[in-house]
Amino acid sequence: MTTATAELLTVPEVMARLKLGRSAVYDLIRSRRLVSIRIGRSRRIPADALRDFILHAVEEAA
Results as ranks from 00 to 15, higher is better:
28 L>I: 03
13 E>M: 07
27 D>F: 08
15 M>D: 00
61 A>M: 09
55 L>H: 10
38 R>W: 03
60 E>Y: 06
7 E>H: 04
4 A>S: 13
35 V>W: 05
42 S>M: 06
33 R>I: 03
54 I>H: 03
60 E>R: 15
57 A>M: 14
44 R>Q: 06
52 D>E: 14
3 T>C: 03
59 E>M: 09
48 D>E: 14
28 L>R: 11
24 A>W: 04
32 R>C: 01
8 L>W: 12
5 T>F: 07
4 A>W: 03
37 I>Y: 05
43 R>I: 14
44 R>L: 15
29 I>R: 12
1 M>F: 05
9 L>D: 04
3 T>N: 12
44 R>M: 13
47 A>T: 01
33 R>A: 10
25 V>Y: 06
16 A>Y: 01
7 E>P: 00
39 I>A: 11
34 L>W: 02
18 L>C: 06
55 L>Q: 14
62 A>R: 14
11 V>Q: 05
46 P>H: 10
12 P>L: 14
23 S>G: 00
47 A>N: 03
51 R>Y: 08
1 M>T: 09
46 P>G: 11
12 P>F: 13
50 L>R: 08
58 V>K: 11
57 A>G: 02
61 A>D: 13
11 V>F: 04
31 S>R: 15
14 V>W: 06
56 H>N: 05
12 P>V: 08
31 S>E: 15
37 I>Q: 07
4 A>G: 02
18 L>P: 02
56 H>S: 11
2 T>N: 13
30 R>Q: 13
13 E>Q: 15
17 R>H: 05
19 K>D: 15
48 D>K: 09
28 L>H: 12
34 L>V: 02
40 G>W: 11
7 E>I: 15
26 Y>W: 11
49 A>Q: 03
28 L>N: 07
4 A>F: 07
41 R>G: 14
31 S>Q: 14
57 A>N: 09
16 A>N: 11
11 V>K: 04
50 L>A: 08
33 R>K: 14
48 D>Q: 13
58 V>N: 05
39 I>R: 14
53 F>H: 12
30 R>A: 14
35 V>A: 13
39 I>K: 12
25 V>Q: 10
30 R>Y: 09
37 I>D: 01
56 H>Y: 04
21 G>S: 08
43 R>T: 15
43 R>Q: 06
23 S>N: 12
31 S>K: 14
42 S>G: 01
47 A>V: 07
31 S>Y: 07
28 L>Q: 10
2 T>P: 00
9 L>Y: 05
5 T>N: 10
36 S>G: 12
29 I>C: 12
30 R>M: 04
49 A>Y: 03
10 T>F: 00
13 E>P: 00
21 G>N: 13
25 V>D: 10
17 R>E: 12
2 T>F: 08
48 D>L: 12
36 S>V: 08
40 G>E: 09
50 L>W: 09
35 V>T: 13
27 D>E: 15
50 L>C: 08
34 L>K: 07
19 K>H: 13
8 L>N: 02
